[in-house]
């Protein structure tokens, strides 16, 4: 990044390329070839403010961060003009100290960012096989617990869009929710226990009639996963998500479903699984 002195008689198209006030300050320090530990604060502050004025002349909207730094610089400058207040411990505190520490810290990471830039370029020259649909008898198993909430969220959105569930009109009378989260959880748990091969994730949503019901079913499923009654499993990349009952401490499905409908939720469930085991 080379920054030349602006020529007033030339059309201005140079845009600020700084990543923030710290970046601009480091540039000024480099341009002026001054020691970062001994910043001539008056000189640097003047140049910093000049640069800001220049940008304002270009009608660029200045980020507030730049103005905060300008205020900090002016404050440091004025504190350096004043005699330091007498201190008992006789350690003279340089008003620039905090700023220098911040600049040094920032500089460490810009160096690392440069390295990452090089590695990104190197890595971009390597190519790997893409995941393809394999027609063989086996597929690569997903690593345990590699399915994240994000994957479930994506799958949910794709079901919603595929189903084309219409939104209720804004003027509709909102009916009282007849199905509670607990009832829904018990319903899903029963269905999962009934399906030996695991229940396809979509099936808990496909029978629903409204978006709110879909959301309720989804929340009920998440809650069941959270309290450890079911697992969501994806056997391959882009594969279907299956809901399976947890075999450890599952107990009698009917009793488990029963227990979910009794408040309070958490303590009842943990008690039930203790009995079931």
């Amino acid at each position: 990044m080379t920054v030349s002195t602006p020529h007033t008689d030339m059309p201005r198209f140079r845009l600020p390329v700084y990543e923030g006030p710290l970046d601009l300050l480091l540039q000024l320090i480099r341009e002026n070839e001054v020691d970062i530990y001994d910043i001539p604060i008056a000189q640097i502050t003047r140049q910093y403010l000049d640069r800001l004025a220049e940008w304002q002349a270009l009608d660029l909207v200045l980020a507030g961060d730049y103005l905060v730094m300008a205020a900090t610089l002016v404050e440091i400058k004025s504190r350096m003009l004043l005699p330091a207040p007498p201190r008992q411990d006789e350690i003279e505190v340089d008003p620039r100290e905090a700023l220098v520490a911040q600049l040094l810290e920032y500089q460490r990471y810009t160096g690392a960012a440069e390295t990452l830039r090089d590695w990104e370029a190197f890595r971009a020259s390597l190519y790997f096989r893409n995941a393809t649909e394999i027609a063989g008898d086996y597929i690569l198993p997903m690593e345990q617990s590699s399915l994240t909430g994000r994957d479930l969220h994506r799958a949910f959105l794709s079901v919603l869009s595929a189903a084309g569930v219409p939104e209720a009109p804004v003027s509709a009378v909102v009916p009282r929710r007849r199905v509670s989260l607990r009832v829904k959880m018990a319903e899903i748990l029963r269905a999962v226990h009934g399906a030996a091969e695991g229940l396809p994730f979509e099936s808990i949503l496909s029978i629903e009639t409204s978006r709110a019901d879909c959301v309720l079913a989804f929340l009920a499923m998440l809650e069941l996963i959270r309290i450890g009654r079911i697992n969501a499993v994806q056997r391959g990349p882009f594969g279907d998500i299956q809901l399976v009952a947890r075999t450890d401490g599952g107990g009698d499905p009917a009793a488990a479903a029963e227990s979910i409908s009794d408040p309070p939720l958490r303590s009842t469930v943990s008690k039930a699984s203790g009995v079931g085991a």
Binding site: Y109, A113, L116, R117, E120, A124
Partner: peptide, 13 residues
């Protein structure tokens, strides 16, 4: 495209 400089700086931090 490649990552921007702000993205790389943030990523390295």
């Amino acid at each position: 495209g490649k990552l921007s400089r702000p993205a790389l700086e943030t990523l390295s931090i």
